[in-house]
Amino acid sequence: MSESTRPKTNNKRTLDVAPNMGEMVKPAELIEVKGASRLTLADRRLFNVLLRHAFGPDLASEGRRFEIAVADLRETHESNDRLVQSIEALMTTVVTIQRPDGSTDRVQLLGWNNLSDPKRKRGNLKYSIPPELALLLKDSTVFAKLELEVLRAFTSKYALALYEAVARRVRLKYVFTERFALDDFRELLGVEPGKLETFGNLNQYAIKPALMEVNALSDFTVTVVPEKTGRRVTGVLIGWGAKDIEGRKAAYAELQRPRVGRKARITGTVEEMLPPEVIE
């Protein structure tokens, strides 16, 4: 954890924070994890919904099980077959989380679960947060407040990842930038190993689409400036800032409009199709 993201004087536990209406609170430990690059946008949305439903002091209790109506997962999946795929992706994804003392935990994102009759649209999903992850979150004091409407509007997992990363920083006082090594920034965005390997492709298919959506839909602005060693891009400098009232009004207005034509409205250009692996 860099100095810019190290928690300031704050003894309030993340799990005791009450989200405002239309928000979810997400512990910082679950925002910038390593090993989650193969999760799709749908997988990440499902995890956020399950986390939001379980959020609170009970989340840190070992052995605690939660239950959510399958109908409440429709914002992430239209079919139960796809839902099962995302559940299994979360169960088999092992992420590494770095503690403030420099040690590293390796944990799964989702534990035991039971889906009542996956052939039916109605029913419930019972699930648990892995006990090791629950214990890790117990003492969390750093978090992001995420707007649910903004989370639902993203069409790229890169935009969702960038939004979450900046949302946990934008409330910091006197800190408006942070440097990342290029490999760390790729991990932050969720770029899979072997994909978008050149900076040109990374910029075109991940960074620019993410910036377009985050800057158009959120309450803050983000910039990503490449930094070179010689001729090679080896890192980026991320900058952020809160929007003024007119900027927030414009973002809200765009959220109310259909996704179709959004790029053209924002950039004044004709929309182009992105490769499927970029959208996911």
Rank of each mutant, 00 (worst) to 15 (best):
M212S: 06
Y127N: 00
L50F: 11
K208H: 09
V17Q: 03
A69V: 07
P19R: 09
W240T: 06
P7I: 03
H53L: 07
P27I: 04
T267G: 12
G261Y: 05
V107S: 09
F143W: 10
E197H: 11
K208P: 12
Q204F: 14
K121C: 15
R13W: 03
P19T: 05
A159P: 02
R65T: 05
F185V: 01
L196S: 02
E227G: 09
K26D: 01
Q204W: 14
K138G: 04
K145P: 05
L115E: 07
R265I: 04
P118C: 14
M91W: 15
V70G: 14
V224I: 09
N48F: 05
A153V: 07
L202C: 10
S218N: 05
A69Y: 14
I129S: 03
K195T: 15
G230E: 03
V224Q: 03
R231G: 04
I207L: 08
L90E: 00
N20S: 15
A181H: 13
L237Q: 02
A251Q: 11
L51F: 10
L30G: 02
E78F: 11
S37T: 13
R186H: 12
T93G: 04
K119H: 15
E29V: 01
M1K: 12
V49M: 05
S128K: 14
N215P: 11
R65P: 01
S4V: 12
R186F: 09
G111R: 03
D219G: 10
F176S: 00
N114I: 04
R248D: 05
L217E: 01
Q108L: 10
L151G: 00
P226T: 13
P7Q: 11
G230D: 06
T93A: 07
R171M: 12
K263Q: 13
Q98N: 07
Q85K: 15
L274R: 10
V233T: 02
Y163D: 07
M91C: 15
